Amino acid sequence: MEQFIRVKGIAAPLMRINIDTDQIIPARFLVRTSKEGIGEGLFADWRKSADFILNRQPFEGAVVILADRNFGCGSSREAAPQALRDRGFRAVIAPSFGGIFYNNCFRNGIVPVEMPIENVRQIAGEMEASGGRSEVTVDLEALRVSTAGGLSFDFIVPSMMREMMLAGKDEIEMTLEKGERIHAFRLTDKARRPWAYALAPG
């Protein structure tokens, strides 16, 4: 799992509601056998327009997306956060997310930041007013989003997901690190409830 402490860079205002996973990565790009290069299909249909924000400088180099509510809704394709990450994105800031997409983000090196729409619009306004020259910092360690223009907003994420990303370890690795504690619990519990372990190996 990819580690994340903080990221600082350009944020692209994509202030639309209900951006679903089929818009993020259309189904025709899902036939590849690996996630390498999957970012080629990111927002493929929208990129056909020269005016699409990710086709314009300096937003082509954005590392954060700003969006309206329900980002990542729709089908449960993990390719959506994979495509975002392959194109260099490390965070998405929106009022709400599709549930499966939200969880998949953490496992693919992206922090989904839930924030009131008023705050997201303030950040988007600063980005647009500066022509993309202002930068946003998403700090997972401090649980804070800040901008070069002086905006600062706290956010929360599930503590387990935060711990995993800060350590760069997935659920299995985090569980294996607690092996001694798990073994000690099993010994104590087995002495207290031997019937529960009658058919269990070990």
Rank of each mutant, 00 (worst) to 15 (best):
I123A: 13
I53T: 10
A12H: 08
P201N: 03
T21D: 05
N119Y: 03
G72M: 01
I10L: 07
D51H: 10
V120W: 02
R186H: 02
A94T: 08
D68P: 01
G9F: 00
S130D: 10
R47W: 14
L143R: 14
K35M: 11
D170R: 00
F155D: 15
G99E: 14
T188S: 14
P13E: 08
L199C: 01
G98A: 05
K35R: 11
I100L: 06
D170M: 01
F43D: 09
S159C: 02
A94E: 03
I117A: 15
P95Q: 06
D139W: 12
F71D: 08
I24S: 10
A196W: 05
I10H: 12
G61H: 02
E141F: 09
E78F: 01
R144G: 03
D170T: 00
W195P: 01
I17W: 05
C73R: 08
M15H: 02
E36M: 10
R162K: 15
A12E: 02
F97A: 10
N55C: 11
L54E: 07
F59L: 08
P13A: 14
Q82S: 08
Y197H: 04
I5Q: 15
G72Q: 07
E114K: 13
E60N: 09
S152T: 06
A91C: 03
G179S: 02
M115N: 13
E78D: 08
V111F: 06
P81L: 05
P26T: 11
Y197V: 00
K190D: 04
M160E: 14
I19D: 05
G149M: 02
T175H: 01
I19S: 04
Y197T: 00
R28Q: 14
A184I: 00
G72K: 09
C73A: 06
Q57L: 13
G109Q: 08
R107I: 03
